[in-house]
Design a protein around this nucleic acid. Structure first.
Length: 305
DNA sequence: CACCACCCCTGGACGC
DNA sequence: TGCGTCCAGGGGTGGT
């Protein structure tokens, strides 16, 4: 659920509310939510430490204590980090899996109904980076056309599948992949390695642009997402294709198409995001055409509804 | 190695 | 109202 803009909004909320605060007590309410076996107990949740920083890489969060300990947080699909300021009414508490109380009375809760998210405890930020962040590509907020070109080069999968791959670039999920491809005028099923230099420039610009716009709006709230202050985002109203299948394209008014790419619901405009004629067979080798047919028989890689 | 299918889990929307 | 079905923004893993 939360992609880069939503995670960045949460990070900023944490930076405002818990950085500089001391963890008076920390409790894990559901053991298996802490994914690092061995390190358990309050110390694994930074108890006794003072929060030095809240960091983000792609969709991953890290909370660092001044003594060096670090806690990785991933929100998965439905994870939330909710801050309750002293004296304020507590937010939702169902599916709360961990709770922190700070020296100024601030309370932080990690809740995650679907439990695709989790917590990872490390003795140092370096250890966290080496274990959890090592395989992440460059942060999508600062992706350049050149970095994108290098990482998409010769790739045969659909460009949308590549954008969702966190090793290619970190932070883009289903919503902003569709938004960035639409803004760049690139069809989601284009072979990743087939994009022209000009298309790569537009795509990199679109990725950075839509992510920045979404951060300004506090993220997209489709269902569960809320910032650390519990407030929903406003970007969902500004998204041009996500969630708008069957509605008119904002550019050409043709009805937006929906399909399935990389097992994800995909919305795009067939007029504004064109595929070359008889794609992909025009530029596919025999072996890839065979692979394409084999894939198509089981589950189409790129199918429209 | 690159890529894909499948799985993890709960809740909300929808149809009957 | 109640039940069944489908779907959802995430990633990890095992197989091809």
């Amino acid at each position: 659920m939360p992609e880069l803009p939503e995670v960045e909004t949460v990070r900023r909320g944490l930076a405002r509310s818990i950085v500089g605060r001391r963890v008076e007590s920390a409790r894990l309410l559901r053991r298996d939510v802490l994914r690092t076996g061995g390190r358990a107990g309050p110390a694994a949740l930074l108890a006794g430490g003072t929060i030095a920083a809240a960091l983000r890489r792609g969709k991953h969060l890290a909370i660092e204590a001044r003594d060096g300990r670090a806690l990785g947080v991933h929100l998965g699909m439905t994870g939330q980090l909710l801050v309750t300021r002293p004296g304020a009414r507590a937010g939702r508490n169902d599916h709360a899996h961990a709770r922190w109380a700070f020296d100024d009375g601030t309370v932080l809760v990690f809740r995650d109904p679907r439990r695709f998210g989790g917590l990872w405890s490390y003795p140092s930020l370096d250890a966290l980076r080496a274990d959890r962040w090592a395989d992440l590509g460059p942060d999508a907020l600062r992706i350049t056309a050149h970095e994108l070109a290098v990482r998409l080069a010769r790739g045969r999968r659909a460009v949308k599948a590549a954008l969702l791959d966190q090793a290619v670039l970190a932070g883009v999920g289903n919503i902003y992949a569709d938004e960035a491809l639409f803004r760049a005028g690139v069809h989601p099923c284009r072979e990743a390695g087939s994009l022209t230099r000009h298309e790569l420039e537009r795509l990199a610009d679109s990725i950075r642009g839509v992510l920045r716009e979404a951060i300004r709006a506090g993220g997209s709230t489709v269902r569960d997402y809320a910032g650390a202050d519990g407030r929903p985002g406003r970007q969902q109203e500004r998204n041009l294709v996500y969630g708008r299948g069957g509605q008119p394209c904002v550019r050409c008014e043709r009805l937006l198409a929906t399909g399935l790419v990389a097992q994800r619901r995909t919305v795009y405009c067939e007029a504004c995001q064109r595929l070359p004629m008889s794609y992909p067979h025009t530029n596919a080798s025999d072996s890839s055409a065979r692979r394409e047919r084999r894939v198509r028989r089981k589950a189409p890689e790129c199918s429209s509804d």
